[in-house]
Amino acid sequence: MGLPTLQVEISCTIQNFPKYICSVVIPAHFEVSENALPEVVDAEEAERHQAVNAALQWVNESITEELWGLNPSNQAEVDHRLRIFFENKVQEDKERRELERSSEEPVHAPPPVIPPPPPPPPTKKKGQKQGRRDTLLEKPIIPPEPPEPVLHGSMAIGAVSLAVAKASARLGGTPLYMSMASLKHGQEPPSMLTMPLVMGSVLSCGKSSPGKLNLMKEVICIPHPGLTTKQGIDLLLEIQKQVNRVMETPPPPKPETKKGHDTGKRGQQPITGKMSHLGCLTVNYDTLEQPLLLIQGICSNLGIELGMSLHLAINCAAHELMDYSKGKYEVMVGTHKNIAEMVDLYVDLINKYPSIIALIDPFRKEVSRVHLFCFICDKVRSLTFHIL
């Protein structure tokens, strides 16, 4: 994406001569917003540079000294030293923040603000039945949690640990995945090697995308578990290739009337996209159906049976959708829904597209999962519904 990041190189002394072994590149944790204000973009860019520069300083100075002389096959000792080093850095940062906070605190603290009493509950209309919808709807909206601070330079820890593991595998002449599996099984090769279920993000239509759709931060394709890992990855790469081809194809010209006026939908934007920090295309879609119809069309062209050979999952990232001034989720620009309306939206979406087998973060975390699961299953009786 053309953004500064960290590359760690490993050299070992072999027969008294230093020799370059391998390198590892690790991404930064920063999310790139498509429609952020210029001052926000500048602030994020400055913070990203600080994070990468701090990581560079850690690797080139302190961490290199900590690991000098260790055998790269001793992963446990490497990770132990990295963990102690990071704990010390976290403690230093905590002490620095407390010192800054104490110097900024006023001498006389203002009196505590007494919150106003809660409004009386609404009167129950005659004939109205109290059900689960009302219970779900009246749950108070908890204010947003402050973002958890990320220590500048922390990306160096994972990068160095992975680079050492890669160097050990290369020196031992074994694949990296097999070398990492042997760490779990006491340096012995496992009798049977299992791989996680292959999943791949192919589209991003979330809050930071240029279109009106906010709900689908990631549209994730999940090959059938019966496929091998290689077959699943090949399938995902082919789908991604077709998505890129569709995005690069210019839209057809709109028909004109006899008077020369455009008969297409006014204000409709062409389908364009670019790579997001999630590794997939950011698309300016305006409706829930558009990204799903795109995947359907691609599967149809490839002869893939959606819902059998391939399933879908949606990362809703609902915590990013909450409009606290209204107490509702902004699923699309200008379209706000409360919890009960969100449930109806998800139920309709799953009934219309049964290939969706999972919703990731469909609500903020204060919503009771058990309550919500029972509420949805009451509406979708024939569907096994997973909330991850």
Rank of each mutant, 00 (worst) to 15 (best):
E366P: 00
I157K: 07
D262T: 13
G273V: 11
L235T: 13
C316R: 04
A318N: 11
E47F: 02
S102T: 07
N338Y: 04
I271S: 12
K139F: 06
L171N: 06
G127W: 02
N338M: 03
I21Q: 08
P118S: 00
I84N: 07
S309L: 08
D286P: 01
L302D: 12
S309W: 03
E238C: 03
N74A: 14
F363Q: 01
L6V: 06
H80M: 13
V164T: 10
V219C: 12
E188C: 06
P120S: 00
H152W: 02
P147L: 08
V107P: 00
K352D: 07
L162D: 11
H277S: 02
I10K: 02
D348P: 04
I141P: 07
E218W: 11
T194N: 08
S276W: 14
K139Q: 10
A165V: 03
P111W: 05
V283F: 12
N244D: 15
Q242H: 15
Y353A: 01
N214Y: 02
E148T: 11
Q240L: 08
L213D: 00
A165C: 13
N60E: 02
T282M: 14
L388V: 12
L288D: 05
P18W: 01
A169V: 02
A165W: 03
N88V: 11
A358N: 14
S276R: 13
P190E: 04
E9R: 14
A55Y: 10
H261R: 09
P38W: 10
S201D: 12
I222Y: 02
Q296M: 09
I387H: 11
